[in-house]
Computed example of a mutant assay.
Amino acid sequence: MTSPTPSITRRIRAPQAAERTASPQSRAPRPRGVWARRAPLLPALLFMIVVTQLPFVGTLVISFMRWNALDPGNRGWAGFANYRTEFTDPQLRSSLTTTVVLTVAVVAVSLVLGLGLALLLDRKFLGRGVVRTMLITPFLVVPVASALLWKHALYNASYGLIDGTLNWAWRLFGSDNAPQPDWLSQNPKLAVEASLIWQWTPFMMLILLAGLQSRPADVTEAARVDGASSWQVFRYLTFPHLRRYLELAALLGTVYVVQNFDAVFTLTSGGLGTANLPYTVYTTFYQAHDYGQASAEGVIVVVLSILVATFALRTVSSLLKEESR
């Protein structure tokens, strides 16, 4: 075998030598180019910091202060006194308990109803598109408009739909003594919960319907061919698949319901034991003018929301990882 000529050898070795002499820094992108690409995002970043972070830092600082506009001479550093008051004062502790009870009740019932509606809409039937649009509509209504609708069109004891239906039903049986309860005064918490459940059930339904439509159809068909009943398919296939979506819907619903203010303010004005933390922040700031205490309550609401949002983000990331596999 003859050896290659010197010219061929030089042509072969030249690219290899050039590749060895090239350092990693020369192949990496220049820092100036990276900053040139990131520079257009700096105004948006600065705007977000100014709009979101600076007000929160100011609220956090004020929460450690003794600051009441009705007593301007008694202003100063209070330490953790506002937070101790939040957890020891009976009225403030009641608002915290009301927030937890209201959130758990609304999220739990909305999840169950949303799951049932999602299972219904997952089937093919005539007019499914129209039904889906009608079921989504409550979630698209402005929260204040939704609360006003329930307060006047449904709960009103004189002309509301609920009491009017009871009166009509009693007259069918020849009686004029139909019960006419005042729902907002006799069952205030239930009235607020019902309006929020009506508003948030479509949200749960949309998330769970997306989970149902992501199921592998061949697995379900194979189970039915093997003789599995509808309950067995739901218990052993559908429900385990929906577990992540149920967690996501519950966490996101909790974040929003914890911060709810419109329904409580519009329906009951925080009376009769329905005042939650957001409404208490409003009354403490605008009625009692206690800026330090109101800031402490606002920080507690933000911390609770961040804790729930952290779990929600983890659930979303796990869903994305499962979809990418």
Rank of each mutant, 00 (worst) to 15 (best):
M204C: 12
S175M: 09
Q293R: 14
N82W: 02
V302M: 14
A145F: 01
D163I: 12
L252T: 09
P6R: 11
E323W: 08
T103F: 03
D176E: 14
A105I: 06
A223V: 13
W231G: 10
S95I: 01
F239D: 02
P31F: 04
N276W: 09
L119G: 09
R314G: 04
G73R: 12
S110N: 05
R123D: 08
E323G: 13
P143W: 01
F139D: 03
E221F: 10
L172C: 12
P179Q: 01
L212H: 00
V303T: 11
A105T: 13
L248W: 03
M1C: 07
F311E: 01
V142F: 02
R123M: 06
L54V: 15
L119E: 08
T284C: 02
R10Q: 12
Q186K: 07
Y236F: 13
S23V: 06
L313A: 08
P181K: 09
P15V: 13
L102N: 03
G58N: 14
R235S: 06
T85H: 05
R38V: 13
R244K: 07
Q91S: 06
V225W: 05
Q16P: 00
T2M: 12
E297L: 15
V101C: 00
Q232M: 09
V257E: 05
D163V: 15
P29R: 08
G116F: 08
M48P: 00
V106S: 02
K189Y: 00
Y236E: 06
L246T: 12
A294C: 12
G292S: 11
A169K: 04
N68V: 07
A249F: 02
T133G: 14
I306T: 08
A44L: 14
T21F: 10
T201V: 06
L208F: 06
S318W: 11
M48N: 04
P143N: 00
V303C: 11
M65N: 11
D262S: 10
S269D: 09
L41I: 11
A191N: 02
I207V: 13
H152K: 05
R244L: 11
F265N: 07
A81F: 05
F80R: 06
P188Y: 05
L148C: 00
D290Y: 05
A169Y: 04
A69I: 09
